[in-house]
Design a protein around this nucleic acid. Structure first.
Lengths: 221, 221
DNA sequence: CAGTGTGAAGTTGTTCACAGCA
DNA sequence: TGCTGTGAACAACTTCACACTG
């Protein structure tokens, strides 16, 4: 349905990662805006509210393929659709989650992932007490069954919310089972083959930034 | 506060944020390494394991003030201490958390924050069923009491794990109570005065990166 | 003219190249 | 020779400047 030819028109290839990271912010803002019934929205207004540079917003949004009207801005409805399209919120990605602890549970329960195109279809753990139970309708299986289930359901994303010590071995299983992307919440770097997409969400990195900034201003009056 | 940033006498100002974000990764790796009894570690080895550029590692580590021995590397023990020093893991920062839902609970329970210098001393919610209970020894109070408690305990960090709709008003309370930094997990941008440090941890940004990368490679092969 | 859209300049962070050292 | 340490080249991202448009 879509060409992979490298015509000049094709928008797909080179989206800067920082832009991608901002896209969901635009989307959440626009959803809120739509509720208030606004028809149009301009980049400078978005920029002010999200605390960004106006030109940045214009450039970011252009990646969705939107075209705005000078002096007025963009049609909210159109922009919303193009953003959801860009972010892939329309297609469903199915995921297996390993590590049904507090964080894993939080992710499973997280409202909003569904409409963001992510569906956690099963969870796994090694804790006998957790196996057989379910969280928010998602069954928790023995990790030993991962391979078995993965062979039957085609899963593109694996989520790791295990303790650090288990993360690498879980990743290995995921790779063997043909998972294409791994979302790692364990506070260690894991190693995977080149072609696997890996996204680390290291909570300590964020904490480090906060504490570092606090330290820089702590002698201020 | 209108004027340009004054150079502080004590520490060198300019540590790149990406460097700060990588620091905890070095630390966790080194802690693991220390268990295995290694005395020395070199930048190229760290780089290989953490999948980074060797020069990058050298530059990053130099911000801690470490000096290594050519051909051998760095003394693990020293590097560990300097990293903990850099990251402020030695001083304790106390935090209030608002929103004792799944994510909030996960953070409270999160082992490791303590040794990373973050102590969540109290949690708040508006849900009557949660108020009065506790999670992992942390009491959950009525949000109405936030101001009262904040006036008695000196808190530098506020953590927001509420639904999006509540985030801004909670942030406002935090600002009024003199909190210096806000760690925001709600999926919206919140607005705070210039001098407040704000760190957004938007889970959707990470998801967006994964799905975007998946989309780029799905027509491969 | 207030806003879009885009090429150019500026800034920040990463990678290279090489000097110095044990 | 293998590693540290650093200035310089490079790449990525952001901000600026300005032409264009309703």
């Amino acid at each position: 349905m879509e060409e992979k030819i490298k015509t000049t028109k094709s928008k797909l290839q080179p989206v800067p990662e920082p832009t991608v990271r901002r896209m969901p912010n635009y989307l959440t803002f626009l959803k809120e805006l739509q509720k208030s019934g606004e028809q149009y929205i301009s980049a400078p207004v978005i920029a002010k509210i999200l605390n960004l540079d106006p030109t940045q917003v214009v450039k970011d949004l252009s990646y969705t393929g939107i075209t705005g009207k000078p002096k007025v801005g963009y049609v909210v409805e159109d922009l919303l659709n193009l953003l959801e399209d860009f972010l892939g919120y329309n297609r469903q990605h199915e995921a297996f989650l390993v590590g049904a602890g507090f964080l894993g549970g939080a992710l499973i329960q997280y409202q909003g992932f569904r409409e963001a195109g992510l569906k956690i279809v099963a969870a796994f753990d090694v804790d006998k007490k957790k196996i057989g139970t379910e969280i928010a309708g998602v069954s928790i299986f023995d990790l030993k069954n991962f391979r078995n289930l993965a062979s039957r359901i085609h899963i593109s994303i694996g989520i790791i919310t295990t303790p650090a010590s288990e993360a690498q071995s879980v990743a290995d299983i995921m790779v063997v089972c043909g998972i294409k992307a791994i979302w790692n919440f364990a506070p260690v770097s894991i190693w995977v083959p080149e072609h696997i997409i890996i996204q680390d969400t290291h909570i300590y990195s964020n904490l480090a930034v906060i504490i570092n900034k606090l330290g820089q201003t702590n002698n201020d009056k």
